[in-house]
Structures are given as C-alpha cells and as structure tokens.
C-alpha cells in the first residue's frame, strides 16, 4: 500500500514535468505578448491542479492494475503453445483468439481514452448536443477495434504495412468526398486522439509479443504499425457513422430534417 502511494506521488511529479512546457508557453504568451491578466485565474489554476492529480491517479492506476495484466495476457495469447492446442504448424486461422482480443481491447481502451473524451465533450458542446458524447466515442472505438484486429492479422500474415495504409487512405479520401461537411474535421481529429495513454501501451505489447512469436517476423520491423491502423480506421468509422445518420434522418423526414440539422450548427 505504501509502495503504491509512493508510486502515485512519483507519477504526479512526472505529469507535472510533462505539463511544464505547456504552462511556460501559455503564461509566456499571455504575459509577454497579450499583456493581459488571465481571466478567472484562480479557477483555471484549480482546474490545472485537478487535471494533474487526475492524470497522476489515472496513470498510476493503469500501471498498477491494467498494464501488467494486459501485457501478460498479450504474451500468453500469442504464445505458440497456447495457440497450437492440438499441435502442428500454425496458419493464420489459429490466431482467432488473438484477433478477438485485439478487437475487444481496442474497443475497450478507446472508450476509456481521456483525450477522446475531451474531444467528444467539446464536440457535444459545439454541436449543441447533436453529436452525442457517447455515440462519437462508440463510433471511434469500433474503428479502433477493427483497425487493431486487422493490424494483428497483418502481423500474422506478414503482408506489407503500406498496402493496407495506402488502401485505407484511398477509402478515407473517397468517403471524405461524400461525407457531410460538418463532420469531416472532427472525424480526422478522432483519428489522432485515439492512441494515447491507455491504448498505446497495451497495443504495443500485443504487437511486439506477436511479432516476437510468429515465425519469420522481426519485432523491430513488424511490431510497429498497429498505432497507424488505430489512427486510420476511426476516421472511416466516424465518417461512415455520420453518413448513416444523415441517411437515416433524410429517410425519416425527407428534406426538412437535413436543413434543420445543418441549422442547429450555426
């Protein structure tokens, strides 16, 4: 118990160190360039303290509970002796539990990702409630889940990363041409925020574990690339989600509702 408290203090100290450059930039510009006092300074300072404490608890909790277990599970699931079961050479289908784990863990960690939560809260405020905090996160989480499962399949089969990524880009570009305009920027942002504190360590452990045990894979070359999948596929799923809800509302009430939904944004 004492150990975990000490670790907590250490994590909070690390978080403070990481935040320092941001605080310097903000206060430097505020005082030297804008030359204005910061409005509600006390409240904002309290907010910063809460963010620091919150991240400290969050990271330390992950380190104590989730990461060791998650890493261990990634290792055990990718262990050839677990996968082979009956013996014999492994083909790509023998990794079915790994795909399922990749899908499930991608989904679950994305729902808990704090930076995605922040973007979703902001999007909800800006869209006056027409974009749901939970709905956006679920759409993103499905994208990450599919992306990571596919990324794991790539490591197992050993096909080149750029085939998938370039195909993915072409699909995203096509979707962009047809997507409702208001969602585009948000969809691209969702790609960038999915992969941070919770997702990266677990997904990286899975990728490295797999690249280390699948014959013929080099962990240093093939272990990378999962994060790229996790940032590409949410863009697709959010664009698709927006397109679907547009279709649905158009079918339900004809032309009126699409006008109404674009009006609520202004």
């Amino acid at each position: 118990m004492l150990q975990i408290l000490l670790d907590l203090l250490l994590t909070i100290a690390h978080t403070i160190r990481d935040v320092l450059p941001i605080v310097v930039v903000i206060f430097g510009f505020q005082l030297l360039v804008l030359k204005k006092p910061i409005p509600n300074l006390k409240k904002i300072a309290r907010g910063f303290v809460l963010v620091l404490l919150g991240l400290g608890f969050f990271l330390e909790g992950l380190e104590a509970a989730l990461f060791p277990l998650g890493r261990l599970m990634a290792q055990q699931l990718t262990d050839p002796s677990f996968l082979a079961g009956g013996g014999g050479a492994l083909d790509w289908w023998d990794y079915q539990w790994v795909y399922l784990f990749a899908f499930a863990i991608g989904f679950a960690t994305t729902v808990a990702e704090p930076s995605l939560l922040a973007v979703a809260i902001k999007a909800n405020q800006v869209s006056a409630g027409s974009i749901g905090i939970f709905g956006l996160r679920i759409a993103v989480a499905i994208g990450v889940a599919v992306g990571i499962a596919l990324g794991v399949f790539r490591i197992v089969t050993g096909t080149p990363l750029y085939w998938y990524i370039i195909t993915g880009y072409v699909l995203v570009l096509l979707q962009t041409l047809f997507a409702p305009r208001m969602i585009i920027a948000l969809a691209y942002d969702s790609g960038g925020v999915t992969t941070s504190t919770v997702t990266v360590p677990l997904v990286a452990a899975l990728g490295l574990g797999l690249a280390g045990t699948v014959p013929g894979r080099n962990p240093l070359l093939d272990g990378f690339g999962l994060i790229a999948f996790a940032s590409l596929f949410p863009i697709m799923s959010v664009l698709a989600y927006a397109k679907l809800s547009e279709w649905r509302s158009q079918r339900r009430t004809g032309r009126k509702s699409s006008e109404a939904s674009s009006c609520t944004l202004n």
Binding site: M1, I4, L8, I26, I38, P39, N40, K43, I44, A45, R46, G47, F48, V49, L50, V51, L52, L53, G54, L55, G56, F57, F58, L59, E60, G61, L62, E63, A64, A65, L66, L69, A112, P114, L117, A118, I121, K122
Partner: peptide
C-alpha cells in the same frame, strides 16, 4: 487486491481529469 486498488485509482483519476478539463484546460 492491488488490481482493485489500481482500478479505483483509474476511476478517481478519470473523474478528476474531466472536472479539470472543464475548469482549467478548456477555458484557458
């Protein structure tokens, strides 16, 4: 036991973070 404490930390941490977002990071 350790894992349960860890999850408790994660929950408290996420809650504080969201409070801090709306009080500090978004306004600034």
């Amino acid at each position: 036991g350790e894992i349960a404490v860890g999850f408790l930390f994660v929950i408290v941490g996420l809650t504080l973070f969201v409070q801090g977002l709306n009080m500090g990071l978004f306004p600034i």
